[in-house]
Amino acid sequence: MDKVILKNLRFDLVVGLDAWRRWNKPQPVFISLEVQPISNFEAAAAKDDVSLTMDYGKLYKKISAGLALVPQFATVQMLIAQISELVTDYLVLDIDILLPKAILQSRAGVLYRSQFDRSSSDLPAFSLSMTIKEIACDCIIGVNPHERIYKQSLFFDISVPFIGPVTSNADNSEDSEKLHNMAQEVIARVEGSSYLTVEALATAVAQIVTMNYDHTVAKIRVEKPSAIATIEAAAVEITRSRSFFDNKDFWKVKLP
Results as ranks from 00 to 15, higher is better:
80 I>T: 14
80 I>A: 04
80 I>D: 06
81 A>I: 13
81 A>Y: 10
81 A>P: 11
82 Q>D: 10
82 Q>H: 09
82 Q>S: 15
83 I>K: 07
83 I>E: 10
84 S>N: 14
84 S>K: 07
85 E>C: 00
85 E>H: 13
86 L>T: 11
86 L>W: 02
86 L>Q: 07
87 V>M: 08
87 V>T: 05
87 V>R: 12
87 V>G: 02
87 V>A: 04
88 T>K: 04
88 T>I: 12
89 D>K: 11
89 D>M: 12
89 D>H: 15
89 D>P: 02
90 Y>L: 05
90 Y>Q: 09
90 Y>R: 11
91 L>V: 00
92 V>D: 10
92 V>N: 14
92 V>P: 08
93 L>A: 09
93 L>G: 08
93 L>E: 03
93 L>V: 10
94 D>I: 06
95 I>P: 11
96 D>V: 07
96 D>M: 12
96 D>G: 07
96 D>I: 06
96 D>R: 10
96 D>F: 07
97 I>S: 09
97 I>F: 13
97 I>Q: 00
97 I>P: 04
97 I>E: 10
98 L>G: 01
98 L>W: 15
98 L>T: 10
98 L>Y: 04
99 L>K: 01
99 L>I: 06
99 L>S: 00
99 L>V: 00
99 L>Q: 06
99 L>C: 01
99 L>E: 01
100 P>F: 11
100 P>A: 00
101 K>W: 08
101 K>C: 06
101 K>P: 06
101 K>L: 07
102 A>D: 10
103 I>D: 10
103 I>N: 05
103 I>K: 04
103 I>Q: 08
104 L>I: 03
104 L>P: 00
104 L>M: 04
104 L>C: 00
104 L>T: 02
104 L>D: 05
105 Q>I: 01
106 S>Q: 02
107 R>N: 14
107 R>K: 14
107 R>P: 08
108 A>V: 03
108 A>H: 04
108 A>I: 05
108 A>L: 09
108 A>M: 03
108 A>P: 00
109 G>N: 01
109 G>E: 15
110 V>R: 06
110 V>F: 13
111 L>C: 01
111 L>Y: 12
111 L>F: 12
112 Y>D: 06
112 Y>S: 14
112 Y>W: 15
112 Y>K: 06
112 Y>L: 04
112 Y>G: 03
113 R>P: 09
113 R>G: 08
113 R>A: 13
113 R>L: 11
114 S>T: 14
114 S>W: 14
114 S>K: 13
114 S>Q: 12
115 Q>A: 03
115 Q>M: 14
116 F>P: 11
117 D>Y: 05
118 R>N: 10
118 R>D: 08
118 R>E: 12
119 S>E: 11
119 S>H: 01
119 S>I: 02
119 S>G: 03
119 S>K: 13
120 S>T: 08
121 S>Y: 07
122 D>I: 02
122 D>A: 13
122 D>F: 07
123 L>S: 13
123 L>W: 01
124 P>N: 10
124 P>M: 09
124 P>A: 07
124 P>L: 05
125 A>Q: 14
125 A>K: 13
125 A>E: 01
125 A>S: 11
125 A>T: 01
126 F>S: 06
126 F>H: 06
127 S>L: 13
128 L>F: 02
129 S>N: 12
129 S>Y: 03
129 S>V: 01
129 S>T: 15
130 M>L: 15
130 M>F: 00
130 M>T: 13
130 M>P: 03
130 M>K: 11
130 M>W: 10
130 M>R: 15
